[in-house]
Amino acid sequence: MPHLPPVPLSWYLVLSAILFVLGVAGFLYRKSIITVFMSIELMLNAVNLSFVSFSYQLRRIDGHIYSFFVMVVAAAEAAVGLAIILTVFKNRGTLQIDEVDSMKR
C-alpha cells in the first residue's frame, strides 16, 4: 500500500466549493423542476460538508449540529417542495421550469 501524505482540510473545503458551484450550475442549466430541486439539495450537501470540515478544524461539534439541522430542513423542504411540484404538474401538465411563468402574464 503506497503511503500518501495526509490530506489538508482545505481540500475538503475546495471539494465543497466545487460541489456547490456544480449545484448552482445545475440550478441554472437544468430545465426540469425536479432536477433543479435536486441541484438545490446538492448545494445544501456541499454546505454541509463545509460545516463538518470547519467542525473538524475547530474541534467543536457545533458544525455537526448545523448540518443536522440542514438535513432536517432539507427533509421538510423536500416534502413540501415535491408536493408543490406534484400540484404544479397536476395543474400544468408540465415540469419544464421555463413554462411555469404565469406570474409574468
Partner: peptide, 15 residues
C-alpha cells in the same frame, strides 16, 4: 484560510 489542520482519520471523533 491557510492554517488548516490536516485530516487524519481517528484523531478526533467528536460527532
Amino acid at each position: 484560510v491557510p492554517k488548516l489542520r490536516t485530516v487524519e482519520f481517528g484523531t478526533w471523533v467528536g460527532g
